[in-house]
Design a protein around this nucleic acid. Structure first.
Lengths: 99, 99
DNA sequence: GCATTATATTACGAATACATAATATAATAA
DNA sequence: TTATTATATTATGTATTCGTAATATAATGC
């Protein structure tokens, strides 16, 4: 994704795609939790209140989009933020809405 | 909306609602354009490439949500950002994705 | 008045997203 | 080997969103 430009239709298409992922309460909570440290699917299930299936599906899709990365350790899969821009975005949201 | 807290489910529900509005290419472009200065529906129609009906509907809904405000001058309706948090958010997106 | 321009509203089919249930797989424990 | 735990996958009905067409309203210009 090239930067240094005014918002164009193409840029907005890309960013809107990212925002669509964040525009869901439980997905947003999951991503917020992951900015601290990697967490297992089970951890995120408890923290978000979403079902096992939903959490796994959310993470699978976000991984496919390159937003998070997975590392399997024994029977657990730990997820972590993969995209630094997402981390910045979550931090910006925190600054605006939580400080 | 009270602030100063870690992300909670309720906070995420609120923020996700806001992000849902931004998670659409043309709505995002419209909001980006409005951070500079108020613009008419027709201006936004041209800038976003969305249909007259769609632009009017987008603006109507965003107004109902308190994100933008309208001021009618003669036959034109000028829209402007109403929520300072949205302005901050758009600026953060600009910093992350356009600089 | 009539035509034109600007905006808003309503309606509706098509596409998408959601939540949930059911099932599968893989690892560990007993 | 059987049971249990952790995660992934698939399926599916429902709800929501989107885009567009049609129509309405309101102001301006002729």
């Amino acid at each position: 994704m090239d930067k240094k430009q005014l918002p164009t239709v193409e840029k907005c298409e890309f960013v809107a795609e990212v925002l669509k992922v964040l525009s869901h309460p439980q997905r947003l909570l999951i991503l917020c939790q992951l900015t601290d440290e990697a967490k297992s699917v089970g951890d995120l299930e408890k923290l978000s209140g979403a079902s096992q299936s939903a959490v796994s599906q959310f993470l699978g899709k976000m991984k496919a989009q390159g937003l998070v990365k997975a590392s399997k350790q024994n029977q657990f899969t730990y997820y972590d933020i993969a995209d630094p821009d997402i981390k910045k975005l979550i931090q910006a949201l925190y600054t605006i809405y939580c400080l």
